[in-house]
Design a protein around this nucleic acid. Sequence first.
DNA 1: GAATCATTCAATCAATAAATTGAATGATGA
DNA 2: TCATCATTCAATTTATTGATTGAATGATTC
Lengths: 223, 223
Amino acid sequence: MASAKIQIFEQFAELARVLGHAHRLELIEYVSQGERSVERLAQLTGLSVANASQHLQQLRRGGFVQSRRDGKRVLYRLADGPILSLLSALRSYAERNRAEVGKIVSDYFHRLDELEPISRKELARRLKAGTAVVLDVRPEDEFALGHVPGALNIPMDKLKRRLAELPKDREIVAYCRGAYCVLSFEAVALLRKQGFLVRRLEDGLPEWKAAGHAMETSPPGQP
Amino acid sequence: MASAKIQIFEQFAELARVLGHAHRLELIEYVSQGERSVERLAQLTGLSVANASQHLQQLRRGGFVQSRRDGKRVLYRLADGPILSLLSALRSYAERNRAEVGKIVSDYFHRLDELEPISRKELARRLKAGTAVVLDVRPEDEFALGHVPGALNIPMDKLKRRLAELPKDREIVAYCRGAYCVLSFEAVALLRKQGFLVRRLEDGLPEWKAAGHAMETSPPGQP
DNA sequence: GAATCATTCAATCAATAAATTGAATGATGA
DNA sequence: TCATCATTCAATTTATTGATTGAATGATTC
């Protein structure tokens, strides 16, 4: 029988391998927005349903997601536990030790947003003081599943046509799915060009939620 | 061309895959004790030299270890950066979400040591106050490469014959390679049976070092 | 510079993982 | 109960990864 230490390492390695596939990481990102059916997740990631199902089952075996049946569909959601902090450790390791990651980040993301993002803590402070204008640029269905309290929802593809809904005299805080979600970067770039004062929230909604901040699942902050 | 987000996920996945093999995790554990030649690491892990070399190269590509040539041998060492915190995120995730890990830990480790380990902070405090008696149970060569200042080195296999060197009236703090290194657990079990007051240090030497605590590389704390 | 030693490389075979296909399961609603 | 739909399972093909072997490289010592 293998030693206890080797057994432990085998377990760790098994978990690391589950994270060792881009499709699964992408699935985790979508699942961490809220519950989703297999079909929806397959659509979002561009995978076949059977393939998505198999990847989701691997994630479930690894304890990263949970599932429940609702009628004829099976809904997957992020499991409890320190999953996002594991992923954020992986992220900060990658950003520091892999030149490619840094390059992609600066080429595609920071080029669109040279300003520092605002921290979750700062946003929480502003929310408490009632001075925050928060913009959620994710699609309506994701917004409905949960968002920062009082946030205004204008999906990225409709932003250009709905600029009138945003104030010009106060700083807007935009966010979307996560640290590498392009939507909020694009939103910031577009709004700045239009003369708005706007900054991104560091990370995205899952991290906001995981940090224990308040959430709202009711309909959008629109009349 | 794949989207920036997918490229990022590919990078993350690649890193996770490097951690996705028990042999590589074991190699990291040994390498994090100090510089080691390929041959030595192969011995320690029971791998063939060629195989160990290949795993080490994967770890190097992933940025987890670095190497330098010294005469005819190549020495590998742990790279800088948040590697241990990534591994500790993996560890705490595994302990929480995987029943098997919890079971192995309690079966093989905690059975030997039902007392809470002492924290690094507490040990640092005692060292400063000069009230600590620290016991390093790793082999001499690992001890020579670096240890907690003032620590006494009695390798596990010689502990039984050298009990006389330890005080009976003060609490001894034992440590070894890492959180799952059996040596310190066995040391604690043995010493308790002999009537010594003894507790383990949480984690092991690499974590102590990574947390920025003082190290000593000079010869053992023995005459 | 020839011999020796440690490591790496290259080629091979075995094992494992991923994607695809089509059939099976389990729930719903006519 | 039968038809339908979402998901999973099972079987297959393809791709990737791991281990082994023996040769090649690079550095040392005689």
